[in-house]
């Protein structure tokens, strides 16, 4: 019972941290998903070297833990002369991770568009670019939406890793409050619940989105 009494006092600090977490997540998605789309299109290229290069980039991007990517951009980069703020490094790192992961999701979506439609567009004389723009991407993206939302939830969770690069996000705030009050358990549990408060409804939304989509097809 003692635990719960302290919660209201923690809220202002934690909410500020939550704001930063959400900000970083949204920015990373806004930059990363278009990047992922470009990679997905590139992965379907007819030229083998392009395909191989892109698949290589994607595999490395997906194989490296987000934590390591964060460290590379924040700690590692200054040695090469480029110093990023913790916010900057977090956004760049998570955007890169987003691009790598979403490229696979989007590639699946783009492939799900029936080949017959692509043929019809070709038979009508539409250029490859027009076919992509008007036929493949609109449908492919729609199919990918539930998975993309699912991934967005994971990226939001990943912002907690930015604790290691001194970003004042939710976890950092929780930890610093904990270290001053020595009541780690209480504040960390509250922070955890705040994460869950966003991710759990969002997951539920994904389920709904998936069912809605299945209906239209």
């Amino acid at each position: 019972m003692n635990i719960l009494n302290d919660w209201p006092s923690f809220l202002p600090g934690l909410l500020a941290g939550l704001g930063v977490s959400v900000q970083v997540a949204l920015l990373s998605l806004l930059i990363g998903i278009p990047g992922g789309l470009l990679l997905a299109i590139g992965a379907g290229s007819k030229k083998k070297p392009v395909r191989t290069l892109i698949i290589g980039i994607v595999e490395i991007g997906r194989g490296t833990p987000a934590l390591v990517v964060l460290q590379i951009f924040y700690f590692g980069l200054p040695a090469s002369g480029l110093t990023l703020s913790s916010m900057g490094a977090s956004v760049v790192a998570l955007a890169a991770t987003t691009a790598a992961y979403t490229s696979e999701i989007l590639r699946g979506g783009l492939q799900a568009v029936p080949q017959g439609e692509v043929e019809a567009a070709g038979a009508l004389g539409m250029s490859r670019r027009d076919t992509l723009r008007f036929i493949v991407i609109p449908q492919g993206f729609r199919v990918a939406i539930p998975s993309l939302i699912g991934f967005a939830i994971l990226i939001f969770q990943a912002t907690s890793l930015a604790y290691t690069v001194a970003l004042p996000e939710l976890l950092s705030q929780a930890y610093s409050i904990g270290s001053t009050t020595f009541n780690y358990l209480s504040v960390l549990v509250l922070a955890g619940l705040m994460y869950a408060a966003i991710t759990v409804p969002a997951s539920w939304l994904t389920c709904r989105a998936e069912k809605r989509l299945a209906r239209h097809l």
């Binding site: 990943a158 604790y163 929780a174 930890y175 358990l185 960390l188 955890g192 619940l193 991710t199 759990v200």
Partner: peptide
């Protein structure tokens, strides 16, 4: 299940190590 998956792993580790660990 939802709570276990909804809270980031690093936060869980902190809860267990720092939160429970002090006790």
């Amino acid at each position: 299940i939802e709570i276990l998956r909804g809270i980031p792993p690093i936060v869980w580790l902190f809860i267990i190590y720092f939160g429970l660990g002090t006790a």
